[in-house]
């Protein structure tokens, strides 16, 4: 597993845990706001980074080459 994926899993788990914490334990208002502002966006972003499809390693070289070869 590469760095991006590990970091995404880490952030995703932390954000889901803290959102659940705020849902279940009803902490002080400012803690809830901080969690909502930070971790709702982060959970969606990290979920997206996990769910996105990654290009195949073999195809990488083809993509890097200039697509326009009409000179």
């Amino acid at each position: 597993m590469d760095k991006l994926k590990t970091a995404s899993w880490f952030i995703f788990i932390i954000s889901v845990v803290s959102i659940v914490y705020a849902l279940v334990f009803n902490p002080a208002v400012w803690i809830v706001y901080t969690i909502a502002l930070l971790f709702i966006p982060l959970s969606i972003l990290s979920f997206g980074l996990l769910s996105m499809a990654r290009g195949k390693k073999e195809e990488e070289e083809d993509k890097r080459r200039e697509p326009f070869i009409g000179y």
Binding site: V29, V32, A36, I40
Partner: peptide, 12 residues
């Protein structure tokens, strides 16, 4: 309602 629940519901 629970504040966090309220926020999540409204965002959704």
């Amino acid at each position: 309602m629970n504040l966090m629940g309220n926020i999540i519901l409204n965002v959704a």
